[in-house]
């Protein structure tokens, strides 16, 4: 087969869901830092969200599997830690999807802007840590529901 263009590869990677938050793609999450052909090998630069995120190995496997299904067999993954991942790299599309899914997207102010369930703005933090390394636990005082907040880093 002909080598797919890097734009095509980006589009394919935008269909690979994050294993922990499947409504957003790896591209939405901002962890794909580069796509480059080196001879007949496709090199993908991936950055971890948090150092110890257990999803990292699953993500690597998912990338190789997804590209393999498109006929790209020679894939090399390169871990890139500088510059460090920041939630500024979340796509606007990804932020919207997170909120619809019930996870408040990160805000520069350091806390959620509104409850992803009812839109209420009277919120309290339960814990800086949540169900995955990238999230914190919050609660809405209007609808009384707890929700995840995607931490800003």
């Amino acid at each position: 087969m002909d080598k797919p263009t890097t734009d095509q590869v980006w589009a394919w990677l935008d269909e690979v869901p994050d294993p922990e938050i499947p409504v957003i793609s790896l591209v939405d999450l901002g962890i794909i830092r580069g796509v480059e052909w080196q001879g007949d090998t496709l090199e993908i630069a991936v950055t971890p969200t948090y150092s110890g995120c257990p999803a990292t190995s699953v993500i690597n496997l998912d990338i190789v599997t997804a590209l393999g299904a498109k006929g790209v067999d020679k894939v090399r993954l390169r871990q890139q830690i500088a510059p460090p991942w920041t939630t500024d790299w979340l796509s606007d599309k990804g932020r919207e999807k997170l909120e619809k899914y019930g996870i408040a997207p990160p805000q520069a102010a350091g806390g959620p802007a509104r409850c992803p369930q009812c839109g209420g703005e009277d919120l309290e933090r339960v814990s800086q840590f949540g169900s995955t390394p990238c999230k914190a636990s919050w609660r809405c005082r209007t609808c009384l529901e707890p929700f995840d907040y995607f931490k800003c880093i």
Binding site: P48, S51, G52, C53, P54, F129, G130, P133, S137
Partner: peptide, 20 residues
């Protein structure tokens, strides 16, 4: 529960940094 999760997350970050 919240403290349990917080401690486990902290441990996870530390182990991740160890790998580097």
């Amino acid at each position: 529960l919240e403290e349990d999760i917080a401690l486990a997350n902290t441990a996870l970050d530390l182990i991740g940094q160890t790998q580097f």
